[in-house]
Amino acid sequence: MKTHSMVLTALLAAATLLSGCDKPGDGGSAGAKTIRVGATGLSFPTAYKKDGKLVGFDVELTEQIAKDLHYRVEWINADFSGLMGQLEGGKLDTVANAVAITPARREKYDFSGPYSYYGSQLVTSSTNTGINTLGDLKGKTVAGVLGSNHVANLKKAFGDNTITIRTYENRDGAMTDTMNKRVDAYVNARPILLAEIKEKSLPLKLVGAPLVVEPVGYPFHKDDNGRALQAAFDRQIDAMRADGRLKTLSIKYFGEDITAPPAGAAQ
């Protein structure tokens, strides 16, 4: 009975939120409700700037969901740790920047269903002939983005402290230092790394298999408004998966379908 009551409450909240979208003065054009969404604007190909416009897989997906729900998106740009801080502080409704669904984050937020899957992958300079496997990284320095789940996965994989982890505010600095051999390797999402290496012909190579594969979703606040947004986003993600638009969007930006977990991947 308690579970039934909670579900009913969430559905009523979603209905209230959606019905309010058409009210004048709710924010945005034509009375559309405004949702505040965070993205770095530096994350190719998920959320980046092209000719001054914010574009990317997560960006286009969010805009399509918002359009279908008659919302208007107000984009807020910051580094990843800053975005998560703004979300925690209530300044954002959600973040659209490949946010992995982890147990620690689930304690703070209610997540949408997964819309993509990312493996934490290590890369090194293509001229580093002595680094080809994860074992080769022992005693080395590995870069990662501050606040990223990939850094957390790195710590778990090398729990014996056999590597030194250096964190950066954004991935550009981490990647540049890796290519210039100021650090020995860099960890990020495998699909993102492959897309960027191909797009920019970067002198980087993969090191070993992904440490772990994690689902990616939208984090929402654990309150009535957050649960209503979560329910609304879930319906649209399911609809886009069913009609093929989600897969098409993935192929557009990554050249492959990352909207389903890889076969045999460790999660």
Rank of each mutant, 00 (worst) to 15 (best):
T129P: 00
D238R: 08
L87I: 07
S5D: 10
D177M: 03
D184Y: 10
T176C: 06
R171T: 07
M84T: 07
L134S: 05
I192A: 13
F233M: 14
D26S: 12
S116H: 00
D224I: 06
N225E: 09
V37Q: 09
G244K: 11
A242G: 08
G56K: 01
A239R: 15
T259Y: 02
L42E: 07
A30H: 11
A232P: 03
N170I: 07
D93R: 06
K33P: 01
R166I: 11
A39M: 09
K2V: 13
K205P: 11
K67G: 02
K2N: 11
K222L: 06
I76D: 01
R166N: 12
N128E: 07
G264V: 14
V123T: 13
T40V: 15
Y117F: 15
L12G: 14
S81L: 04
N77L: 09
S81T: 13
L54F: 08
Y253L: 02
G135N: 15
K140G: 01
A195W: 02
T133R: 06
R36W: 11
L137C: 08
M6A: 14
M6W: 15
T9R: 14
L193G: 11
R105V: 02
L137K: 02
I237W: 03
V183C: 10
R166A: 12
A100F: 08
Y118S: 13
N170Y: 11
L137D: 01
G31W: 00
A104N: 07
L229G: 06
A185V: 02
T3S: 05
V183L: 09
D110F: 01
D79W: 11
K49P: 00
A266H: 06
P219A: 04
F111I: 04
A185L: 00
T127Y: 04
A263G: 03
K50I: 15
K252L: 13
A260Y: 02
S126C: 05
S112C: 10
G82H: 07
D68W: 05
K2E: 15
D257N: 09
R72V: 04
Y109R: 08
A242N: 11
R235N: 13
F111C: 04
A10H: 08
G119H: 07
D58Q: 12
L146Y: 15
T176I: 14
K53P: 00
D68R: 10
M84W: 02
F220L: 06
A266D: 14
K156S: 14
A263C: 06
M179I: 15
H221D: 11
Y117C: 12
I192E: 15
R182Q: 13
K140F: 05
I237T: 05
M6C: 14
P210I: 12
L246H: 04
L206T: 04
S112H: 10
R190C: 01
P45Q: 01
I258D: 08
D160L: 03
I131F: 09
P210R: 00
G159F: 05
A78V: 04
V99D: 00
L83C: 01
L8Q: 10
L194T: 08
T16N: 02
S19Q: 06
V59C: 03
R235Q: 13
D22E: 08
C21D: 05
E256K: 15
K181W: 03
G244I: 09
Q86K: 06
A152E: 05
R235W: 10
A14G: 03
V207M: 13
